[in-house]
Write a protein that binds this DNA or RNA. Structure first.
Lengths: 187, 187
DNA sequence: CATTGTTTTTGACATTTGTCAAAAAGTGAA
DNA sequence: TTCACTTTTTGACAAATGTCAAAAACAATG
């Protein structure tokens, strides 16, 4: 819990009062490896904070799983599309290892927004960070070669390489597992 | 102006009072074709609303221009990274045709956030829409072939094809102009 | 430590897409 | 209508990456 609070304070410092209400709304969860936090077709009604562990978001296309993001320690995690629109999710979220999460329902969060302007501000600022993160990935994928993408990953987010199997990383980068294996062996 | 107000009300309905303050903070601009709204290296201190016209965001890589997004009527436009972080922009924004824009400075917007919770909420909700938009593009780019990307564009955003030259569209899709030309002629 | 299942690597080959250069088509201004 | 300029198309070829199948390496479990 300390960890969560200290993390959000890097986005925006909220008051003690708001913090207490936020803490009240949070629920702790421990989930085992390979469990699904969300299955496609379900509406995602929760926002999660990953205190410890790792997970991935993936969707199924033509019988293949495409992993398009990972979550690690101190990440906020949800199926963003489903959570914000209230429509069924097209993606699945699966635990890559046993993990500790904090969880808040959309209802409770909405109430907190109404009660505390500062909590909505916190989230607005968090959105900015996550938008920039996605934009960066998008721009990279736009013009970099497979090799450059992998080198970039090694540089910028080595924890991904340490924790995640090759097949998922390849999918995340948008290349085949075989190509990634070859790239790695020629570096 | 009507158009802007009616557009933001599709995100979130703000009060008359907030609306008036917002209107006061806005400035109208008319900018000619090919002009740059923002040059890389500058800090982007404004958020724009495109009432009429078209523009593109692009960056330079190895002497080549990479167009990574377009703005059209009723779009909010800025260099998101630079605007939110206050750091120099890595991208340029250029008018594709003579356009009418509304413009608000980051300072004024920040003041409006402090004064009106509802304006910050409006922006929070707008962020959600724009995040989803980016995510959709990202996911498509992730596993679709060049041909599918183009077909998708024809389906989903035909206005892009009508208004924008082939070279820019190719760059936007992340493929070469020649490949796009061939795809188009074989459909 | 033997067995089973999973992940990674390798090889051969096909396919997609990119690059360079030139021709063709289209556009706008004088 | 012509000229200059920009955009699009075409052809020939090269490079990057994907696919399929099998072998090898690794990991987990009884």
């Amino acid at each position: 819990m300390e960890q969560l609070l200290s993390n959000i304070s890097t986005y925006y410092q909220i008051s003690k009062a708001a913090e207490e209400k936020l803490v009240d709304a949070l629920e702790r969860k421990i989930i085992a490896k390979n469990e699904l936090l969300l299955t496609e077709g379900q509406v995602c009604r929760h926002l999660y904070f990953l205190e410890k562990g790792a997970l991935r978001g993936y969707y199924n296309v033509d019988g293949k799983e495409i992993t398009h993001w990972f979550g690690f320690e101190n990440d906020f995690v949800t199926s963003f599309f489903s959570f914000t629109t209230g429509k069924p999710s097209v993606e699945n979220i699966q635990l890559l290892e046993g993990s500790i999460l904090w969880c808040i329902s959309k209802n409770k969060l909405t109430n907190l927004f109404n009660e505390y302007h500062e909590i909505e501000r916190l989230v607005r600022i968090a959105y900015e960070k996550y938008y920039i993160r996605l934009e960066e990935r998008f721009v990279n994928a736009h013009f970099k070669t497979a090799k450059e993408l992998y080198e970039n990953l090694v540089q910028e987010t080595p924890h991904i390489i340490e924790k995640v199997s090759l097949g998922y990383i390849a999918s995340y980068l948008g290349i085949s597992q075989e190509t990634l294996s070859r790239i790695r062996n020629q570096l």
